[in-house]
Write a protein that binds this DNA or RNA. Structure first.
Lengths: 339, 339
DNA sequence: CTGTTAGCGCATTCAT
DNA sequence: ATGAATGCGCTAACAG
């Protein structure tokens, strides 16, 4: 490996002079600067970021911790984060927690030992508290994405889950649906709680109350066990519409419904939070509350970099992004017979 | 920041003993080991990977360079790569080249200065040669993914583009299509060339020759300029089917067709390479040659780690993964009237 | 079983 | 305008 000492020797200067040339710091005569530059090129010299970071206590490394890169929402978010990071000269370390606190903790440990300059953190849920506190204890700046964690005071970028849920349910009401099931994520996730709140508020505004038998709580990530769906469908007065709390749940719901020979929206309407990215554009089907995923990543990254570089005040900032109701063909009026 | 010296002092031993405890190396009496461990916990000590790497010349960092994380093929590939990396104790640095050689070069420079242990490299195209050679010059192990680069001898994981293309075109023949257009990626990408070859072979096997006016070459990533499509449709004898060389192109093609009031498959059938990941599962529509994206990442990562850890022979390995023809509703028999 | 010395590649501080 | 000494946090090599 070529070091500044190799360059120094061949250029007939000291290592310090080479360092100064690299960093454009201090005063160097144009002549030596050129000579050093030339030798650096000849030897294909590349500065060792490791050594540099060890001295400067800055790695220019940021970590993006999300729950699943396979979910289009996070994919697009990641893209926004990466673009913003690159623009500011940071590299991105990548991690999927799979909505699993233990994996998340493992990654936090990795992050800590890697001495990243900051973390963009989409937590698995409330119990991510410890992991976040771990970061705080070690003074690693971070920004929380998508899910709010009780007990943590930090910059955060959120979607408006309550309003999005309300819009979705109101849309179903407008189509005549009254028996609306909620297939929710786990209640230790703030978005699941807020979507439930939005759901029940919409019911109340329409003079209905929540029927607990219509509400089921699963994980946000998958829908392996669809027996809960069977119970829903076996009710005396089964739902005519289902509100899935995110895109992955909707996917599971629809596949399970079809497996049982039910048509969407013919037999039952389905709506959900989060869209499906570019992939969903081919044959847009689901009526969704679409969140601006790219901006989640981009804005979050900006907040993070601001803070790292000292351009942020002490108080935490909180960005709330609206979702957009996109009505497509997974919902239809309840009075319309199956065509 | 807590260092081994802090631990050493408080535990009444030397720094070296602390180091040995951390690494489980050398002989340490059970007693001091416990004492050191206790102090480490009390002080919330976390080893500094930077310093460690500087000494060991190993970062346990790997880089995944792809063209676009927004494309479901690469998303799933990334997931496979990450899972395999994590299992082996490596962290993943992330980069999108956007099919752009300059961005790719920027990232290669970053990678070099970061001293990663290896790179999983999905190149933008033939001109990635220089970037790959740059890695070779600096002795960074890498594995090439998805696209073969003439002039580079390295481990590589490829899909069988020729056969996949042939299957797709044969499927169209079976449905009675004879005028089949190819909307291809740029010809400086190996997969585009091979998909063209597969296309023309299938034609030849059916006693047809390639009609150049039916073949257009764009970038793999987007379909901004759909004027080429107009020329295709304005032909005296226009195509009854379109083979798009990847999923993103298919997306553009279909949207452009619809903008022009054409139905798929009613007016024109469409097939493409690559599926759409979980997102595509809601409403599977396109007939595709699906590649095993997760395995691309997972196997590629395994090859890479094998090589890094010296478990690979000198000769390069070459893995060719088949694609699976999945027939869905974007294709229909040419004799079938629009229903 | 444990400690001392030296050095990984670079940049800060102080000289000259 | 340039150089020498020192240290970032850690571990390999050697000593005891």
């Amino acid at each position: 490996m070529i070091t500044i000492y190799d360059i120094a020797e061949k250029a007939g200067v000291s290592a310090m002079t080479v360092s100064r040339v690299i960093n454009n710091t201090g005063r160097i005569s144009e002549e030596t600067r050129k000579r050093v530059r030339k030798v650096m090129e000849e030897l294909h010299y590349i500065p060792n970021a490791l050594a540099r970071s060890l001295v400067s206590q800055k790695t220019n490394l940021l970590s993006l911790l999300i729950t699943d890169i396979t979910n289009p929402f996070y994919t697009t978010l990641a893209r926004g984060a990466e673009d913003a990071a690159k623009k500011a000269g940071y590299r991105l370390l990548f991690a999927n927690s799979d909505e699993d606190y233990v994996k998340e903790k493992d990654y936090v440990d990795m992050i800590l030992s890697t001495r990243v300059d900051g973390v963009l953190f989409a937590p698995a849920g409330d119990r991510s508290l410890e992991n976040l506190q771990q970061l705080q204890k070690h003074q690693i700046p971070f920004v929380v994405l998508d899910r709010e964690i009780p007990g943590i005071d930090a910059d955060v970028v959120l979607g408006d889950s309550k309003e999005g849920a309300r819009n979705l349910v109101e849309h179903l009401f407008a189509l005549g649906h009254q028996r609306i099931a909620l297939v929710n994520g786990s209640l230790d996730v703030s978005t699941a709680r807020l979507r439930y709140t939005g759901y029940s508020e919409a019911l109340r505004l329409n003079s209905l109350t929540v029927d607990d038998s219509l509400v089921i709580h699963l994980g946000f990530r998958d829908f392996h066990d669809d027996s809960a769906l069977d119970e829903l469908l076996a009710l005396e007065d089964p739902p005519t519409a289902i509100f899935a709390a995110n895109n992955m749940l909707a996917l599971g719901v629809i596949q399970s419904l079809r497996k049982r020979g039910l048509q969407v929206p013919g037999d039952i309407s389905v709506v959900c939070f989060d869209d499906f990215g570019p992939a969903g554009a081919i044959n847009p089907f689901l009526t969704v509350a679409a969140q601006p995923a790219y901006q989640f990543g981009q804005l979050g990254m900006q907040l993070l970099i601001d803070r790292i570089e000292g351009n942020a005040s002490n108080e935490s900032r909180r960005i709330m992004l609206p979702s957009e109701l996109i009505i497509r063909s997974s919902t239809q009026s309840i009075s319309t017979p199956v065509s």
